[in-house]
Simulated scan of single mutants.
Amino acid sequence: MAFLVPSNVTPVAEFILLGFSDIPEMQNFLFATFLSFYLVTLVANSLLLITVSVDRSLHTPMYFFLGNLSFLEIVYTSNIVPRMLVGLISDDKSISFISCMVQFYFFGSLGGTECLLLSVMSFDHYIAICNPLHYANIMNDKMCFLLATGSWISGFLITLITLLLMTHLSFCGPNEINHFFCDFSPLLKLVCSDAYLFEKTSFILSSSLTLIPFIFTIISYAYILSAVLKQSSGIGSKRAISTCSSHLIVVTTFYGTLITMYVVPSAKHSIDTSKIFSIFYTIVTPMINPLIYSLRNREVREALRRLINTKHVF
């Protein structure tokens, strides 16, 4: 892939990720904290993915999508956290231009895919609660595969457009990124060519991966809430509310921070605010997702217990 720059400027060969260098007294504490979060993320998501894969009682559409989400979280957080940890404990804060673009691409692709997967999961809940008699016919194996595959392909293709447009921008210095990874807004501040068309196009693309799925999810849960309130069975209602509330916690945390960062104009964010929001959707959410789904879901807890007792993990 060629990274095009005008002939009269010297292109940037590497960037410096400043991360949290403005608070040097906190480096060790942040390293220990983020390393702990990362390890919990890897273990929790891996355990949930294995459980969903090996326990036949969990071979249903809901857990199929949850398995996709757990795999995504492992890759998503691994794209960012290890490099950030290196920057916290060493003086090497540089990242090559190519590596920065690769990190940006996978961050955007996986983040977009997660938005779509969460929307698909809300659709699955909607069909299960609002149209239960036709659930098995609608959410068959083929449909589940198409929805999951479509989410992955769409996330990677739409972000690829943004990346290709970015390669036509000029980065000619300075090269310091005031962030802990190669994010959209900090990179855009280093562009020394006209980025107006790129910003507008990227806004439309990011909205298609965040705002539209979020609206679809909210509409789905509005119908779900209406259907649950009409149910006469108290047990059925409580179970539906428990399942959906877990998903809503994840959705609210993830979509809320992403929309604030990428749909609300970046001029409204301070550098510190941007970093805090970024911590939520790159580190905190991938960690709490499997914990929320496993701790609040009786079927997952029982499957985990069976898995540990039969020593599949060990």
Rank of each mutant, 00 (worst) to 15 (best):
residue 3 F to V: 14
residue 9 V to K: 04
residue 9 V to A: 04
residue 11 P to N: 01
residue 12 V to D: 07
residue 14 E to W: 02
residue 19 G to H: 08
residue 19 G to F: 08
residue 22 D to Q: 14
residue 25 E to T: 10
residue 26 M to D: 12
residue 26 M to K: 13
residue 29 F to W: 10
residue 31 F to T: 00
residue 35 L to P: 01
residue 42 L to H: 05
residue 46 S to Y: 13
residue 46 S to I: 04
residue 49 L to Y: 11
residue 50 I to V: 13
residue 51 T to V: 12
residue 52 V to H: 03
residue 52 V to T: 12
residue 57 S to V: 02
residue 60 T to N: 07
residue 61 P to W: 07
residue 63 Y to G: 00
residue 63 Y to Q: 01
residue 64 F to S: 10
residue 65 F to W: 04
residue 66 L to V: 06
residue 69 L to A: 04
residue 70 S to E: 06
residue 70 S to W: 00
residue 71 F to T: 04
residue 73 E to K: 11
residue 73 E to G: 05
residue 77 T to R: 04
residue 78 S to W: 08
residue 79 N to F: 02
residue 79 N to S: 15
residue 80 I to D: 06
residue 82 P to C: 08
residue 85 L to N: 07
residue 87 G to N: 13
residue 88 L to W: 01
residue 88 L to Q: 06
residue 92 D to Y: 11
residue 100 C to F: 09
residue 100 C to K: 12
residue 101 M to K: 04
residue 103 Q to M: 12
residue 108 G to Q: 11
residue 110 L to Q: 06
residue 112 G to D: 02
residue 115 C to E: 00
residue 117 L to W: 06
residue 119 S to N: 13
residue 119 S to E: 08
residue 120 V to F: 06
residue 123 F to W: 13
residue 128 A to F: 08
residue 128 A to C: 08
residue 129 I to K: 01
residue 130 C to I: 12
residue 131 N to T: 13
residue 131 N to L: 13
residue 139 M to R: 10
residue 140 N to T: 03
residue 143 M to N: 10
residue 146 L to T: 10
residue 147 L to I: 01
residue 151 S to G: 04
residue 154 S to D: 00
residue 158 I to D: 00
residue 161 I to T: 10
residue 161 I to C: 05
residue 166 M to C: 10
residue 176 E to M: 10
residue 176 E to S: 13
residue 177 I to Y: 06
residue 178 N to H: 15
residue 181 F to C: 01
residue 184 F to N: 01
residue 187 L to Q: 09
residue 189 K to S: 15
residue 190 L to N: 10
residue 191 V to C: 14
residue 196 Y to V: 15
residue 196 Y to K: 15
residue 197 L to W: 09
residue 199 E to N: 15
residue 199 E to P: 00
residue 200 K to M: 09
residue 201 T to P: 02
residue 202 S to C: 14
residue 203 F to V: 00
residue 203 F to A: 07
residue 205 L to P: 07
residue 214 F to K: 03
residue 215 I to Y: 03
residue 217 T to G: 08
residue 221 Y to H: 15
residue 222 A to H: 11
residue 223 Y to I: 02
residue 225 L to S: 15
residue 230 K to G: 03
residue 232 S to R: 14
residue 240 A to R: 12
residue 242 S to E: 12
residue 246 S to N: 14
residue 246 S to K: 11
residue 247 H to E: 07
residue 248 L to S: 09
residue 250 V to Q: 07
residue 257 T to S: 14
residue 259 I to Q: 05
residue 260 T to F: 11
residue 260 T to C: 14
residue 263 V to E: 05
residue 268 K to A: 09
residue 268 K to C: 08
residue 273 T to F: 13
residue 274 S to E: 12
residue 274 S to N: 09
residue 276 I to G: 01
residue 279 I to H: 07
residue 280 F to K: 00
residue 283 I to T: 07
residue 284 V to A: 10
residue 293 Y to K: 09
residue 298 R to M: 09
residue 299 E to N: 14
residue 305 R to E: 12
residue 305 R to C: 10
residue 306 R to V: 03
residue 307 L to S: 12
residue 308 I to G: 00
residue 310 T to F: 04
residue 311 K to M: 03
